[in-house]
Design a protein around this nucleic acid. Structure first.
Lengths: 282, 282
DNA sequence: TTTTTTATGAAATAAATATTCCAAAAAGTA
DNA sequence: TACTTTTTGGAATATTTATTTCATAAAAAA
């Protein structure tokens, strides 16, 4: 009978890799071929059933289970979890920690490290999936506008304040659009076609900001929306919208990535404005 | 009974996204929340069972199946395939990402990547050199205070707004201290000894905020300062001060790390307040 | 309001999936 | 060679997982 590893098996894919390299020569022929397959196609193992995987690997389902057990896993499913873990977008706190840090680690993450981790993750996502072209187009609207109006409530208010501060510093004429429901809508009606509204809103969405967007779009005023989802009621196909999603930690969402996006938008607008002015002079 | 889409459903995640955007409004409440969850956490849907996913999404398994069917899929499994497909050929996030970070940096960096990089560095520095104990002590002051007053101008204003928003959400009594020079100093004189001032100020420092700090310290009011340097005039040895330094990109400083710190401070204060209340009860 | 329709969750059922078992084949040993 | 040990694949079983059903709750319509 096949010797089965009794010690606890690798709990991360990056630990499993060297394990397989070390034990490769001691494995039976079929199990060796599974090892090679596993190292080359981790995503296949993560996303399929034993039947499908074993077929692709050219072995029988039983062999697949035996392979997992020979490493020390309770069964195939147990091993599959490790492969799935390596694909998850949000790294689970302690599994990644074990591989990167050696020795006993404090299981309790500090509040600070939880939030910095979430912030880093959010910013990284912003960089990867943000639409560079959309930012350029949106900033062009701000650069061309005679005046930029900025609106947003609740968690969006800090973003509004920062965008306003930065645009003004860059010499772009920007104004806050503040107030309660009936007043602010009236203000929105005053916007001209050569002006732009920047609407910032996050889940849970306030009907208030949506109203502004509707009024402006109805009057032919350009709208740039910053939101955390394209499902947001203020996201439309006929305006310019930017998406930024903040990772959540125990119910709290930060604003790190959002602030970064706001700064980009403002700086890009500043650059485009300078380019336009140079064009006009020549 | 719920109308079920009879036409063939989207076969890729990138097609599913706009589908959900267009039909979002027509969906029942629970199905809407599933739609939001699905767009925000595609990896969770790809890698888990209905039981696990529906729990995370805050709905029942039945709802999950209904959601899939309402789009036109045969069932949950059919829909899950689409989510899995979007992950299949994606290279391993971590190993790939790290190796690309170490390589030579792109010569032409986009504005976005410049700022995300600066933000990431700032946050990383915050995590490494922030004084965990100082955060705890400062948050304890906020937790004990009858009212927390928050002041700051210019680039600090977004931070003031965010801290205020978060503290209030956590049930901590917080008020903005706004106004121009003579008025605001008068307001500061009203603070009692069981209240706390949070002063936020960055280089170049405004004399204004310093004045507030001096007034408060003179009256025995506790002050928590957030600044970008211990050289800041509002940083003293006898108050609680937190330091956060934002990396600069061609003259612009972001607020990503600062926002992260503000959130930490608020959440930590919220935690300590709960602990205090539990102590009081026993 | 009352009636009708629609939406929802819990439990029962059906389907699929992983795991175990065992006979047979292959490899190793004397 | 004959005997023992290990490995393998296929079928039976146990378990998990998705799906359907149905009673009830919530909206919408009358």
């Amino acid at each position: 009978m096949l010797e089965i590893e009794t010690l606890s098996p690798p709990r991360t894919f990056s630990n499993l890799k060297p394990w397989l390299q070390n034990h490769y020569r001691d494995l039976p022929k079929r199990l060796q071929s599974v090892a090679v397959f596993a190292l080359h196609n981790p995503d296949v193992i993560a996303l399929n059933t034993v039947a499908v995987i074993s077929e692709q690997a050219g072995v029988t389902p039983s062999t697949m289970v035996r392979f997992a057990k020979s490493i020390g896993y309770q069964g195939f499913s147990d091993m599959q979890e490790v492969f799935q873990q390596s694909m998850r977008h949000v790294p689970q706190p302690y599994s990644e920690r074990l591989s990167s840090m050696q020795g006993p680690v404090d299981l309790e993450q500090t509040v600070l490290s939880q939030f910095t981790q979430a912030a880093t993750e959010s910013i990284s996502r912003l960089e990867q999936q943000a639409d560079e072209a959309a930012i350029k187009q949106a900033s062009l609207q701000l650069a061309c506008a005679r005046t930029v109006y900025i609106a947003g409530q609740g968690r969006a208010e800090p973003v509004v304040a920062y965008l306003h501060y930065t645009l003004v510093k860059l010499g772009i004429h920007a104004t806050l659009l503040q107030g309660t429901s009936p007043t602010i809508t009236d203000k929105a009606r005053m916007l001209r076609e050569d002006e732009v509204l920047v609407a910032i809103s996050f889940s849970p969405y306030t009907a208030n900001t949506k109203e502004l967007v509707d009024v402006c779009l109805g009057n032919g005023v350009k709208v740039v929306a910053i939101t955390d989802s394209t499902l947001s009621p203020i996201a439309r196909t006929d305006d310019y919208h930017l998406e930024v999603l903040e990772e959540e930690v125990s119910g709290f969402r930060g604003l790190s990535a959002t602030m970064c996006l706001a700064l980009c938008l403002a700086v890009e607008a500043g650059k485009q404005r300078v380019e336009r002015q140079e064009m006009a002079l020549s």
